[in-house]
Design a protein around this nucleic acid. Structure first.
Lengths: 195, 195
DNA sequence: CGACTTCCGTACCGATCGGTACCGAAGTCG
DNA sequence: CGACTTCGGTACCGATCGGTACGGAAGTCG
């Protein structure tokens, strides 16, 4: 347990890996791309992170704590409408950050389809389900509190908001700019289905 | 020009290739996957279609004429609202057709990111732009006709509808069922931003 | 210092990637 | 029939895929 300490910063390396996965998806990111960006060799990567799948899992966790943390902050808003606004605004901001890849890591990977991407697909499917459940329970609470009309389908509403967020992520990845996407979010909020 | 006639149906083969690209995206579909599904060998594929990129281009054209033809039909509706409804209903139906892959070929490919997918990305970017322009000009006409309020931003509205369609496609690829997606489309239409 | 532990660069693994050269088989003409 | 043309199966190309074996260098302890 004494030995030579590792010669690179694991956190920085993980951050770099996250950016590569974000830009290129799971399958599209080769080990050469990843280790190149991380500034380490394959051997060091395997020693530090296990394998590509584990690296992806850790990079996704890092993504969740950082760029995608707007989801957690959104559900803390006092009203359901403000939750939706915070969520969509956060999606627009994160998917169009100038110093990060366009789009959403969680969406990029979900679609990629080679057979070798199966682990990533499952990981991301779970990630997205967590997000939806988060919104759903928050909206259910809003119904209980009288913030949303009784009889509102919280699950349906959560799915609706998530869907718009995904659409925004796809558009961002396609090169649509922040102003246009903010316009979409505003439109969706202006026509907030309840209230 | 006499020679031996080809021993397979090029149309059927192209259809099979389209399904593979649809399910797996451009990069995710290997030549082995493609030719396996097409029932021909690599050699025959290259002779008949050129290369993978050309095959993809032709498969996309086939997709456009078939599964994605709801877009063209949508803009023929008499009112802007009905255009949007036809578009979103078509998106739900096509992305959840039980005998076809879930999701949208045009969206699957847009996100995939390996370096070798660059040609596909450009092809699909153009494809999506065409769709947006189609809606935009249709909405602009609706403004001219007084169907939409004067001052309505047709481009923004087209982008909004496309975004919801993309979101639906992502959800479909994630396994969300047709009924839930139809609910999303209905929600979006119920809160149609103009009217 | 010297034993020990860990790091990390090189070189390599089999598998698969998209794409091609070759050639016998098979079908269409005169 | 026989010349000709195209089909399409095999075998292969170099490059790259994710992953690993090995060994020298480098750092931490007693």
């Amino acid at each position: 347990m004494t030995g030579r300490p590792r010669g690179f910063d694991a956190d920085e390396a993980l951050h770099a890996a996250m950016l590569v996965f974000w830009r290129q998806g799971y399958e599209g990111a080769s080990l050469a791309d990843l280790t190149g960006a991380m500034g380490i060799t394959k051997t060091s990567m395997y020693a530090a992170f296990g394998n590509k799948e584990e690296l992806f899992r850790k990079a996704l966790a890092r993504y969740d704590e950082g760029p995608a943390s707007y989801g957690l902050r959104a559900v803390e808003q006092p009203t359901a409408f403000e939750v939706a606004r915070a969520f969509l605004d956060g999606a627009v901001r994160t998917t169009t950050q100038p110093d990060s890849p366009a789009g959403c890591l969680g969406v990029q990977g979900s679609l990629v389809a080679g057979e070798s991407a199966e682990p990533a697909r499952e990981i991301l499917s779970e990630w997205r389900n967590n997000g939806r459940r988060l919104l759903e329970t928050r909206f259910r609470r809003a119904v209980d509190e009288g913030d949303l009309p009784a009889g509102t389908d919280a699950a349906q509403l959560a799915l609706y908001v998530m869907t718009i967020g995904f659409g925004i992520a796809v558009q961002a990845a396609s090169g649509v700019g922040r102003a246009d996407l903010q316009g979409i979010a505003d439109t969706a909020l202006r026509t907030w289905p309840v209230s």
